[in-house]
Every structure is written in structure tokens, then in C-alpha cells.
Design a protein around this nucleic acid. Structure first.
Lengths: 341, 341
DNA sequence: ATTCGAATTGCAATCGATTGCATTAATAAA
DNA sequence: TTTATTAATGCAATCGATTGCAATTCGAAT
């Protein structure tokens, strides 16, 4: 069975005895074309079941109306929220979104970047992987003036729009809140410092202690990879400390959760004996017992903002853009894991 | 500043004083070309910073090496897991993945379908939205022999590969388990029946009751849209029933959760007074109190399988394919919300 | 009826890679 | 050396929409 041939603008042109260019213009609502012919063309186009061949148009115009997105892992609440926000805006503006996951591997990130380039995406949004310490694959874009926007896990060295959450402020607010609940000795389960976000959270934590007149004790700042079991190990260590903390700021909700579980198992009351605040507002945080106080990151909104920025840049390629770093506000959500009375 | 011109195969050809076709063949490892010239060509291609213009190639070959994915909402654990699995396989096989969310709106689903078609994606993977009751927009693909694969929320009426989880069996196992825990009257918070998955879950529930010698009482099967507040409304209704159920099979974890919250608030013990099983194994289910017994769906694996199927179909477009419906196994995870003793 | 300007429409090149077919070069066989 | 084969390479059309520029049409004004 031979594939049914798709109708092209030439088919329409032939049928109406006009030029293909007129058809093209009419279908694109070019004001040059008179309303009457335009109407006629659209009518026959519909009758003939015409579907534009975007590939051909893309090829000619060198635009794909496609935004490439690279994230470490799609299946992660924060990232999928951001992607959802990106798609939301992109769709409204007539852009498609192509998504790839780096799995935190530099090699894959590199290959993805090349592939996106070969596909001539109009712009790239990226949150870099844990391994990414060289950036040649990203220069690919900046060199050719393909808009590049970073979010969350950014690269300081590259000039581009960047969207981050206010991790410093988040860490600050979380810690201040714990102090406000009467905590005298606040520990920190921290993330790997090579990622800017965790560094900032820790800095916020330290600043809050300083501002509250509390000492910073390195021995109760535990660096981990922030997985469930890392949290358990960290909280165990903290509870064995000769000077036990009475509150903990965890750099994510996962470790906050494993801490809570460990504490409850060992008869230590949360929040009365040890108050806890996490980070990210994972879906589970609201519904566990006790519910986890945390810092909300507006993932969906971030995604929307990111998409807006890149589309704006795409539509004004010629203009020299003033790069900005947008810091999204964080919000402290006070729940039961830190509420003392 | 004029954009730096990208080098094309013609540039390479000119430089080496050979034909563009030879360059093209060499770069595609066509055996017609001698190894020596092939090597030479690749070398200069690299030197000149050649990047293939996939758009041009796509246009000529009518293939995009792109798979379109339509889901109701990206930011949903099950869907993002599936997408993650799809991307995993697709990437390995040299396909890009374009993702759109229908937001459960038929209108948007329709527009997305047309857009994917215009972009000439090689295949489409879809899980239909709640509103989707007509399928003209999907016929677009089947008519033009563009491979279409359904997962989870499938359309019975269209011939295509389909990948579903064994919802019937899931519902069956959940209900049987509740009966096994001593339940005499098992209610069901059900989903909208126009979606096959919820229908199957309900059928499994009914079959389990039959097999257990229990009556099916329509008045304790509540149909909802399965959001948080729907669950609350449903459980309220069930608890006001003159013959209260002592166990509930919820068609998703969300309503299971809101049921539990409602029950606890009203001093009704879970699982002792009312035992509960959900569906989907959302991340929160494991960590709430009591932890929610549920049915695990292998999202990532499903995504991988889905991608394999569609790529296979894309690569064998000519062959008449025998459509199959693959049923992924479900697993009952017994946790505290249903464990009596 | 002419002229002129504006409003429409048509012509034809173009984008970059691919590919069927023709051609040339290289090698082997006679 | 000549011919027959095979191996490499080149030619040129092609995909479908877009777009600068040329050509035509249409009214209105003279």
C-alpha cells in the first residue's frame, strides 16, 4: 500500500490556479493577500486535508520552534515540576519541548548537547549534572548564539540567564525559625558543596546562627549525599554527639524524613526534643507524621519563568541581551516537625 | 554581527575538490566510499567544525528520529517515571523525545496531536486525558501509518500496541487482601469509568468480592475524580452509610490518603476499624502514618517497554504489525493501613 | 482614456542533505 | 593490449515552504 501522499501548498495552488507563494502567504495570514483569496485558500486547504510540513518550513526558516531541556533526572518531583512549567508556557507560545535526562553523567550531557545542536533547537534550558565540571559542550551554544538558560544547578562561569531559588535565604529562614522555636543548638545535615545550591543553603544556615548569636560548630554540620540512608547515618552521628543538638536543618526533605523516622524509633520526640526543618517541600512532607516543616521552591513557576526568558531571548536574537540572574523567593512552610506549642 | 555560517557538506566538498554526495556518504559510513577518502573527509569535517544539519536531513528523508509523548500531566510520579523510561530507551536508540501535557483537556490534546503531526514525529506515545471520548485527533496518525502506542490510559477502539498494568488483577489482589484481613464489607472509592484503568480496577474488586462470597453493594462504590477532596467527600459519605464498610479499596493513593486523614480526624482507627488499600505506590504512601498498602505499577519499566515497541514499529514501517496488548504485572505492597495484627 | 500608486499575485531561487543513475577509475581476466 | 567487471565517485534532481523582487491588477485621479 503506497502511503497516501500528503497535500502540499503546491497541490492547493494547482487546484486553485494560483501560485504556491500566495498559498503560503495566505496560510500564514500575511496581510499582503486579499481577504477573499485568503478565505478561499483556507477553505480548500481544509477540504484537501492539508497539514503543513513543519519540517520543510523549519528547514527553510532555520527555526524549529523547539526548546531543548536537559535535566539530571525527569522522574524527580522538583524537576518534573519545572518541566511542567516550561511546557506550559512553551506550548502557549507555540514551542515544542524536547526533554533529555543526563542521569548526572557528563558524557551523556555532552552527547545530548550535540544532538540538540544538530537538531537546531532554538534554545536550551539546562540544570547541570553532578559530574559537570567542564563546559565545552555548553560553549557549543554560546558560540553560535543559541540562547541558553540555566536553572537551579547553574554554571557561574558562563554568561547566560540563570534562574535559581534563594537557597541562602531558605537556609537562613529555616534556621532562624528553629531558633525562634527555642532551639539553642542547631545542627545541619548538608549536601555536597560542589553544587552551588547546597553551599548557599549552608551559608544561610551559618549566617542565621551568627545573627542569632549562636556559635557555628563544624562538628554538627554533616556533609552527605542527601539520600535516605545518608540521613539516617547523619542523624545517628548527631545523636551520639556529646553535645546533642536540639534542632536540625536538613538540606532536603529526604534526610529530614529519615531523621524523623530514626528519632521516633529511638524515642526522641519531634519536635519537642529535636525540631526539624527540611528543604524542597516534597509531596510527602505534608502528609507524613509529624508533617515536615520545609522550604518551598516554586518549581512550576520557575519553569514558567525559565521558558519566558528563553523565548524572549529567542525572539530577540539580534539584540544584545543583558543577562540576569533571577532569584526565586522561597517560602518557609511551618508544619509539625518544628512547631513547639 | 552576522552569524558565523555553519559549514555544510558542500563546504567540505569544495575544500577537498570532491562531490557533496561523496561527503554525505562518507559521513554516513556508506560502504561505497573507499576508506581512504572517507577518513580524509571525516578529518576535514572535524577540522572545519562541521555539525550536520539534522533539519535538512530530516526534511529530505522524511524522518525526524523524534518520538512524541502526550501525557495528562508531566508532574505526576507515575507519568514522570514512564517518561523517564521512555527517554532512557529512546536515547539509546538515537531518538529524541518531545513531551507535551494535555492537562486532561481534550482541546489541548487535539492541538498537540496536530502539532506533533505537523512536526512529522516518527511515532507517538500517548496516555489519554480524562475528557477524551472522541478520537479523531488520533486517527490522524493511524490513517497515515504513523506508529501510535498507548500506555495506561488506552483507547480500546483503536488498533495499536497497548501497554497497561494489570489493573484488574491489581484491584483483585487489593480486595482479596482486605478480605483476607477479615474485612466483611469492602467499599470502593472508584475513578471515572470512561477510563479503562478505573473500570478494570473496579471489575477486579467486584470479582474478588464474588470469589469471596461477598455481595456487591453498589451503594458503597463511590465514583469520583480521585483528587484529594474527592476522597474526603467519598469517605464521609461511606462513613455515614447506615451499614458502614470495614475496609476500602481506593482506586488511587491520593484518595486512600485523604480517607485515612479523615478517619483519623474522626477517631476511627486505621486499619482496625477500617482497613485501606490504595493504588499506584506514590512516594508518599510508604512514609505516611500509617503507611499505605498499595499496588505498585512499574512506571519506568513500562516506559522502556513502550519505547521499545514504538521504535520497533518505526523501524519496520512497511511490515504489517500484529498489534499486541502488553499487560505489566502489578505487585501488592502490604503496609500498615491494611495489616490487622 | 491615461496615468499613477497601491494593492495583490506570481516567479524563481533557496535552504542542506540525500539518492538514483551515470560516469570514471581501478582491477582482473582474456 | 584489450575487454569485462567491479569499485568509487560525480551529477543533478528532489523534498516543501519561504521570500525578495518583478509583474500584474485595480481604482481613483487627472
Amino acid at each position: 500500500m503506497s502511503q497516501k501522499q500528503e497535500t502540499t501548498i503546491h497541490d492547493i495552488a494547482k487546484k486553485l490556479n494560483i501560485a504556491a507563494s500566495t498559498v503560503s502567504r495566505a496560510l500564514n495570514d500575511n496581510p499582503l493577500i486579499s481577504e477573499s483569496t485568503s478565505k478561499k485558500i483556507k477553505k480548500t486547504a481544509k477540504e484537501m486535508g492539508y497539514r503543513p510540513n513543519t519540517m520543510a518550513a523549519n528547514f527553510r526558516t532555520k527555526r524549529t520552534n523547539t526548546i531543548g531541556v536537559i535535566v539530571p533526572l525527569i522522574n524527580r518531583h522538583f524537576f518534573s515540576s519545572v518541566i511542567s512549567g516550561i511546557e506550559d508556557i512553551a506550548y502557549q507560545q507555540g514551542f515544542a519541548v524536547t526533554i533529555s535526562q543526563s542521569n548526572d553523567k557528563l558524557e551523556k550531557e555532552d552527547k545530548i548537547a550535540h544532538s540538540l545542536f544538530s537538531n537546531r533547537v532554538d534554545g536550551v534550558i539546562i540544570s547541570i549534572g553532578m559530574e559537570t565540571k567542564s563546559f565545552d559542550h555548553l560553549k557549543l551554544f554560546s558560540e553560535r548564539k543559541i540562547p541558553l538558560v540555566f536553572f537551579d544547578r547553574i554554571v557561574e562561569e558562563i554568561k547566560a540567564h540563570k534562574i535559581v531559588v534563594n537557597d541562602f535565604n531558605g537556609g537562613y529562614k529555616a534556621t532562624k525559625h528553629l531558633v525562634g522555636q527555642g532551639a539553642k543548638r542547631v545542627a545541619h545535615i548538608a549536601g555536597p558543596l560542589n553544587l552551588n545550591i547546597y553551599k548557599k543553603r549552608q551559608e544561610g544556615y551559618c549566617q542565621a546562627l551568627k545573627d542569632s548569636g549562636l556559635e557555628i560548630d563544624e562538628s554538627i554540620i554533616i556533609h552527605t549525599n542527601l539520600r535516605r540512608e545518608d540521613g539516617t547515618r547523619a542523624i545517628k552521628k548527631l545523636m551520639q554527639h556529646k553535645k546533642r543538638p536540639d534542632a536540625i536543618f536538613c538540606a532536603n526533605d529526604t534526610t529530614a524524613l529519615s531523621s524523623i523516622i530514626y528519632l521516633q524509633k529511638n524515642g526522641i520526640k519531634v519536635p519537642d526534643d529535636v525540631a526539624i526543618v527540611g528543604f524542597s517541600n516534597e509531596p510527602f512532607s505534608e502528609v507524613v507524621t509529624p508533617s515536615i516543616s520545609t522550604i518551598r521552591q516554586p518549581g512550576f513557576t520557575m519553569g514558567q519563568k525559565t521558558a519566558e526568558l528563553i523565548i524572549n531571548q529567542i525572539n530577540n536574537r539580534n539584540l544584545e541581551t543583558e543577562f540576569e540572574t533571577i532569584t526565586m523567593p522561597t517560602e518557609l512552610i511551618i508544619r509539625n516537625s518544628s512547631k513547639r506549642n
